[in-house]
Structure formats: C-alpha cells, structure tokens
Nucleic acid binder design. Structure first.
Lengths: 117, 117
DNA sequence: TCTATAGATTGACAATTGTCAGTTCAATCG
DNA sequence: CGATTGAACTGACAATTGTCAATCTATAGA
C-alpha cells in the first residue's frame, strides 16, 4: 500500500513538553529482532560469510580440512568462526573419525531472508 | 540440482603432505563478501535492526525525535546507531530546520537479500 | 602401544563496539 | 540579541571480537 506515514512533528513544541507519545514496541517484535540480529551478526564477518557461501555451494557436507586452506588464517581461527556460526544455528557439524564436516542449516537464514525482502 | 559435491578427503594422508590443493578464492567473490558482510554487520545489532524495521514500515521519512523514544537509550546512542547505518549505506538522512529525517535505501539490502535466498 | 593427524580449546593480546555524560552546533523563537 | 531545542560529536569506559601460539583430545595407522 505504501501510504505515506511520515512521522514528523507538526511544529516546535513548547519547552518541557514531550516530542511525541512514547510508542511501545511489542515484545514479539523485539524477540524477532533479537533473533535476526544474532543471525546478521554472525554473518557480519567476511570470513564467516564466505564460509557459509562455500558450504551452500556444496550441497553436501564439507570437511574442515578443505575449508582451512581457503583462508589466510590459522586453523584455530577458522575453527573459531565455525563455532560462532554453529552457536548462531546457521551451520551444523558432524564428526566422522578424524574429520569434521559442516553444513548449512537453511531454515536458519529464512527468517532474516524473509524480512529483508 | 543439488548434486552431492561433498568435499571429503579420500584417505588419511602420509605425513607432511598437504590435505588438498589450495583453492584460490576469486577477488570478485571476496569483494562481494566484504560488501555483504558490512551490511550484515550493520544489521547485527538489535537496535539497528529495529531502526531499519521502523524506517521501512513508514514509507516516508522518519524524524529522529520520533525514533529516540522507541528505545531505552540515550539520544547520542541512537544517533550513533543511525550513523553506523548511514556509513553502511543502509539509510540516508536529510535535515530540515531543527529536525533530521531518516529513510531506508532499499538497494542497499538487495545484494544481501538476493544472496540469502 | 607409540606416533601422527584433524580439529577444538585455552590464554593472551590489540582492535573494535555499545553506551552514556558532557559538550557543541545550527536553527528557531521571543 | 539571548534562550531553547534537535541532533551530532567527543571522550571515556567496560565488554566483545578477531587473531594466533600453544596445548589438548580423539582417532587412525604402524
């Protein structure tokens, strides 16, 4: 609909009077925003965004030992970034013997994606 | 198509041998990731994400004096968050007399949005 | 069992971030 | 002009973040 709903003060207010009624932000919205901001924050590092990108481009799971040489970073640092992504619920991991495989959890990005478009 | 393209080492390597050929990440991809990560980073704070949300819900421009009471934050802090969003190119601002109006720049979110979906 | 390997964890460090109190600046009103 | 107002800026502070060297754990091979 895109009705123009400019929030704009009508005139300069007399001293001491509030600019406007405080608008209460519903808690549902706040929770929503908190979850999406957490996802965005996890994606807010170039390395992590590229990690997710690589994982998404490979439909299956990717071995950590293939991810590390993609970046000019130490193995612990890559491991740290993967942990951040895991804690944000963006990726999951499985261990198979010596190797660990990571994969994207597509639902994690859906909420933010929907909000953005 | 979602062909299974698992990157997986075939077997344990002999000592001292590399896990795999180093994969060169094209600079275009890197720049792309840098831009998107910058946007995601700016959105990676609940306050900023809600600011963008409010600005998007109001089709026109919104006065800063209407934004400040939405949050339990000082005016300088809200101003700081708006600056971060401005520097990320997510919002723009105009001054009209005493008041400043902010608005979302929709194109800024397009790249990230496209990548996410 | 002993050694080598993949990956995670720890500790340390500089750099960055979110916040506020205090201040500054520009514009409006009297 | 002088006083007031909206908004940005500054300085300070604790908290968080990105990184690496060193270490640790678990597994596999000999």
């Amino acid at each position: 609909m895109a009705i123009d709903m400019q929030l704009v003060p009508k005139t300069k207010r007399p001293a001491g009077e509030r600019c406007c009624e405080p608008v209460v932000y519903p808690d549902v919205e706040r929770d929503h925003a908190l979850r999406m901001a957490a996802i965005a924050k996890a994606l807010g590092d170039p390395v992590r965004l590229q990690l997710v990108d690589v994982l998404r481009k490979h439909a299956g799971k990717v071995c950590v030992c293939e991810l590390v040489p993609l970046f000019d970073l130490s193995q612990p640092t890559v491991s740290h970034h993967l942990k951040v992504l895991r804690q944000a619920g963006i990726v999951g991991s499985e261990r198979e013997g010596l190797w660990a495989y990571y994969y994207v959890i597509p639902e994690a990005l859906k909420e933010l994606s929907a909000w953005l478009s």
